[in-house]
């Protein structure tokens, strides 16, 4: 009897799991401008429950093709993004653009591995995946489990951007720009000229505390140039789609506070561990996930400032 019940439960779960995979419910997306669609990720860490869907991902439909901008934190999320695209157009997906190599932006790449789809990234992006990718997979397998992480493939871009590159989706030009080290050493932005929409990747954070994985001084410098870009709205890497360039104000204040605090601590001869506890603490109330990332940002910033 127990044995039969066990088998029944086992089979029931097997069926449930298979059908869930077969359906791949489309990711909820909003058309923020004609032909421009965005799914806003939740402001959270990547977990099994949220399937890694914490970053903003999107796609742009032109007359002759589609470009996907970031693929999410799991192949499951990538498949759901694909389903959202297929619910709106049958045009071929010509490009998958990764704004940088972080797991919440690239783990969904495998969902788009089809002939004719080109993967596009910053010229440093393949190296970042090479040096960090396996660590990300191991780390997130622990956090998100085998089922979500086993299908992840580290698919490096083959169309590399150094400077700028314009992609044509058919009466629709996307201007891609590779940035010097800022949030990371492989940040790429995508400007949809037609709608004036800037996909800024993690060069722009709102609500979600900025995460420093490149160069603090480089990032602040990039913000000056970034703000000069003519656009109506920005799709940040994390946070709501917002008006441009007003959306930069909070992030700039945070990064400037961090820089000024670590410089002061450094000048006073304080150790790096103290910087981790203190720098930018005045910013706590302005951000979500502050305690998850601020100490890390301060650590990275301090080690950068030491070489000024």
């Amino acid at each position: 009897m127990v044995r039969l019940a066990s088998i029944a439960i086992f089979l029931a779960l097997l069926c449930a799991s298979t059908s869930a995979q077969a359906q791949q419910q489309a990711l909820a997306v909003t058309e923020i401008a004609p032909g421009v669609f965005v799914h806003e990720g939740v402001t959270a860490l990547m977990t099994r429950e949220n399937e890694g869907a914490i970053a903003n991902v999107g796609f742009i439909i032109g007359d002759s093709g589609v470009a996907v901008i970031d693929t999410g934190g799991s192949v499951r999320e990538g498949e759901r993004l694909l389903a959202a695209i297929r619910a709106r157009t049958d045009e071929p997906i010509r490009y998958v653009i990764n704004t940088h190599a972080h797991p919440d932006h690239v783990f969904g790449n495998a969902a788009f591995a089809h002939e004719g789809t080109l993967f596009v990234g910053h010229s440093n992006c393949p190296r970042a995946l090479a040096t960090r990718g396996q660590f990300y997979i191991d780390n997130f397998r622990r956090i998100m489990g085998h089922e979500l992480i086993n299908p992840v493939r580290l698919m490096a871009a083959t169309v590399l951007v150094d400077g700028t590159l314009t992609l044509d989706l058919g009466s629709r030009a996307l201007v891609l720009r590779a940035w010097p080290t800022a949030h990371s050493d492989n940040d790429l932005t995508v400007l949809d000229v037609k709608s004036g929409t800037l996909f800024a990747g993690d060069l722009v954070f709102l609500r979600h505390v900025p995460v420093l994985d490149g160069s603090l001084r480089g990032w602040l410098k990039a913000l000056d140039e970034l703000s000069a870009i003519s656009a109506q709205r920005v799709v940040p890497g994390h946070g709501h789609v917002s008006e441009w360039p007003a959306a930069l104000a909070d992030e700039r204040r945070y990064l400037q506070t961090l820089l000024s605090d670590v410089r002061t601590l450094f000048a006073r001869g304080r150790p790096i561990a103290e910087a981790a506890r203190q720098a930018a603490s005045s910013e706590r109330s302005h951000w979500e996930l502050f305690d998850d990332y601020n100490a890390r940002n301060a650590t990275a910033a301090f080690s950068e400032i030491e070489w000024e």
Partner: peptide, 14 residues
């Protein structure tokens, strides 16, 4: 650590 932190260089050129 969690997130996108990794035991690798942040700024390889530098």
């Amino acid at each position: 650590s969690g997130g996108c932190s990794a035991p690798a260089a942040k700024n390889v050129e530098e």
